[in-house]
Design a binder for these strands. Structure first.
Lengths: 153, 153
DNA sequence: CTATTTTAAGACAAAAGACTCTTCATTTAA
DNA sequence: TTAAATGAAGAGTCTTTTGTCTTAAAATAG
């Protein structure tokens, strides 16, 4: 798998936040129900994003989490780096430590090109890009639902 | 991680076989030592490749495994498919079941492009390509060694 | 102040992946 | 024919990932 499940859940969650126009705090409980993700597990993942500065949280009634920046300014790669770390974009495809220009493996050059295309895709796609597309075409962020249902109160 | 460790070991092993010019059976024990992979674990992985028809094996003294085809005709994707299966090249980046043209997720289109570039790289690179490059530039398939050492008896 | 709502934190359990070990069947060489 | 070398198969262990549960801390509403 390219991304860990935690990372995928983090992406779905930030995408959900980006698709809400209002900048209010959204309870994690509500998000977990809408996105069909275990509440406690999602909480743990969002804590990582909060620690990383991508989200801010607020405790108590009317509390929850929200994006710290405008979603246009958050790229998918920001979420991926916060949760899965940089290894996807730095590691050797053959798993050799220290593989790089200086001490490459036979696959290094070709993999570096492919890896860059992954990085570019993640870096050039903002949360807004996907949220807008999701709304416009009524796509889905869960196994069965659609955007319309997702955003309904 | 893009590829499982089993898959990476399978690639290193087939690459090693491709770099031996003679078409003799190579004992797995020897390969495991050269490649610094646990013998029993490597055995299990190579059994998958044998079952898939990429390798053939021979028991008894002077036995071992060898490629069934010329290494020019084996692409990296053949090994990846035999061990990790097709999921890397078919799965949704957001983990949604049935994500495709008919019922896509918001990321589907962009991911499909990236995924194709991964597929193309794996499909257009043969074992010979990498073996030749490894020999010519004396690269490595292990943490510390180099090709010269790898091919020495 | 008190009860309620919410995130924070960490212990714990289950599942999957990575790896080891033992036993067995096959083949060859002497 | 017997011993040695080898792959085949599967049980078992360790680690990481994934997911659950409990308790604490913070904030608000009344």
């Amino acid at each position: 798998m390219l991304l860990s499940k935690s990372c995928v859940y983090g992406l779905r969650a930030t995408l959900y936040l980006a698709s809400k126009e209002k900048e209010e705090f959204i309870p994690i409980k509500r998000m977990s129900e809408k996105l069909e993700i275990s509440f406690h597990f999602l909480t743990k993942i969002l804590q990582q994003l909060t620690a990383d500065g991508l989200l801010e949280s607020f405790k108590g009634p009317n509390g929850g989490v929200r994006l710290t920046k405008a979603p246009q300014k958050i790229a998918l790669i920001d979420v991926v780096l916060a949760i899965d770390g940089p290894k996807l974009l730095t590691e050797c495809a053959l798993g050799l430590p220290g593989c790089g220009l200086k001490n490459p493996c036979p696959l290094h050059d070709k993999w570096a090109v492919t890896r860059d295309s992954i990085r570019d895709m993640l870096a050039n796609t903002s949360l807004t890009d996907l949220a807008e597309k999701g709304k416009a075409e009524n796509l889905r962020l869960t196994d069965d639902g659609d955007f319309e249902e997702l955003l309904r109160d």
